[in-house]
Design a protein around this nucleic acid. Structure first.
Lengths: 338, 338
DNA sequence: TTGTAGGCGTTATCAT
DNA sequence: ATGATAACGCCTACAA
């Protein structure tokens, strides 16, 4: 930077201001500085900037890692977040920490490394949120807590997604619907999206006069396969199944095959909030009610940066609506015949 | 740090040395420093350390992003890399950049941000490697170039994987085997693993006296489905299929179903280098010849750090062997009967 | 074994 | 509108 100043014939601080635009600089000198910068192919040192300034340009994404390995949906979020950060001149740190813990992130903040943190797999009552808030870490959630007053978040609109899915099944004439959801532990942990989807499904089903039979299955193919076959044995009138996880959909297909129910002629399936890749990989290709997971990552980062910049006086809160994408696992209900 | 020094009754530099262990410190003072550190819950500032020292503690993972969205296999690599970095006290930056480009990473280096870079999707002749080398960026490849002299890498042992897969099919009595590989563009780009797997399969097939019929398919379910059905039409004696990508295996299953070939009784399938998650999601569950993708990420980071620390005088080069995991897509060849 | 002091490359606070 | 200069918090010769 000193070199640039010399070459441009100005002081070091002028160069700094010309580059940051933090104070008015005459056109003439700004031009000379620009020229010198290009001449020397100068790139400001990030560490020095972070040390001296009050912004480091780093964001971190807190990735819960004790859970199931990240599925496609989450991956899409992460990669999109990285891209968005890069586009806005920020750097995205991938920080793995067991669910519910945030000591590491707090340290990152105290060590002057990050400007803020993005949270994944947010619980309705999330200790991390209060801990990080208390530590003065700006944060935005991908997902959301129960009480969202004044907090920044981007989340899937569970209520709307549930309604779309249930309404579609109702239209198709289904009256008894199973829901193969995440394991009980996810409910016990109070994972926001899990609880909201469940509750919303219950409400929507009621509104449409459908009977909804929930089940819980570990996030493994075999577990959801077992869940659905047990469910079908107990409640043979089930003619449609809703699922939440990437693995659940494959498992349900598996389970139905094992008991000789064909999809979609005997049983319809709708996958909630699944990535398009996984939906396409299933056989038959799965009908879904979902949105682009990438939006969660992208908007999350943008919301974070906006809040850092203080562009808005109130918190940015996005609720992403889902769309029904009909593939090959849904059909009108058949007249009972078996 | 000044506070710690005061509390411990020593100089600032003593604290620094006590913490870094860069020079001998008496037990007594080291103890006092330790105590003061804990007392104040002191955490060294990362930016300052990066500015003053010659190490920043940052690594970056170069993620090609113009290609197909990252599949499970790659994700596992990434997450494992993040975990390994964290365990070793490093920070992992996710850097998205179009395949083949490295200007961004070079800048990261010049801006004093990173200690080194990890490369994914390495080509046999990769411009990034020479560019980064030229710019003095320490790098280790996850994958490898053709010429590996003096470079650090962790890669799947394609030769061995191909041999295991072919040998198994040979044992099962198959004599004509299709290979639904990646799209031609991947070959044209010279992606290392793609070429190596292909060439190794050819050699192994020859060695075992099998006929190998390769095909190229875009990384989409529909594309590989079409590829295999065309292949079967042209060469009806095919009784086994090898695949490379996560999506290919679903596609091949799809395609075979569409032409009424059942798996594995009519046709066997082996997926090469696929993540266990995807193998389990397929139906039937796919037999694979693979290794834990996480090893690639973990070992890659460790190799990088070792090279940074200069622990070894020669380059660390790992070739990971694969294992056959029999699931439900392989069976002995049936006597021709259709 | 320990202390002193200069420097890392910016930003921010004073002046001018 | 611009300059000089003190932080920023740590590392590392150099001295003692």
């Amino acid at each position: 930077m000193a070199d640039v100043a010399k070459l441009a014939g100005v002081s070091i601080s002028t160069v700094s201001y010309a580059l940051s635009g933090a104070r008015p600089i005459s056109e003439a000198t700004r031009g000379r500085v620009q020229w010198a910068v290009e001449q020397l192919d100068y790139q400001p040192n990030i560490m020095a900037r972070g040390l001296a300034g009050r912004r480091t340009g780093f964001l971190t994404l807190l990735l819960p890692t004790d859970e199931t390995p990240a599925d496609s949906f989450m991956i899409d979020i992460i990669v999109a977040a990285a891209e968005a950060a890069r586009e806005r001149g920020y750097h995205l740190l991938l920080w793995t920490e067991p669910t519910g813990e945030s000591a590491g992130v707090k340290d990152l903040m105290r060590r002057g490394l990050i400007d803020g943190a993005l949270l994944l797999s947010v619980r309705l009552h999330d200790d991390r949120v209060s801990a990080l808030r208390g530590a003065g870490v700006p944060l935005t959630m991908i997902g959301r807590t129960q009480d969202t007053d004044g907090s920044h978040f981007v989340d899937s609109d569970a209520e709307q997604a549930a309604e779309v899915a249930i309404a579609h099944l109702a239209e198709l004439g289904h009256t008894t619907v199973a829901y193969v959801g995440p394991p009980r532990s996810a409910y016990d942990d109070g994972i926001g999206i899990v609880i909201r989807i469940h509750d919303s499904l219950v409400r929507s089903a009621e509104r449409h006069g459908l009977r909804l039979i929930p089940a819980f299955a570990e996030r493994k193919v075999a577990a959801s396969a077992r869940a659905i076959s047990e469910l079908m044995a107990a409640e043979p009138e089930i003619s449609a199944v809703l699922t939440l996880d990437d693995s659940a959909i494959a498992g349900v297909l598996d389970g139905l095959r094992s008991i000789d129910h064909s999809v979609p002629s005997d049983v319809s399936i709708i996958g909630l909030l699944v990535s398009p890749e996984v939906a396409e990989m299933a056989w038959p290709k799965a009908t879904t009610v979902s949105h682009d997971p990438r939006d969660l990552g992208r908007l999350g980062v943008l919301a974070m940066i906006d809040s850092l910049d203080g562009v808005s006086d109130r918190a940015t809160q996005f609720l992403l609506p889902s769309e029904l994408v009909e593939r090959s696992t849904t059909a009108p209900r058949q007249a009972a015949s078996r």
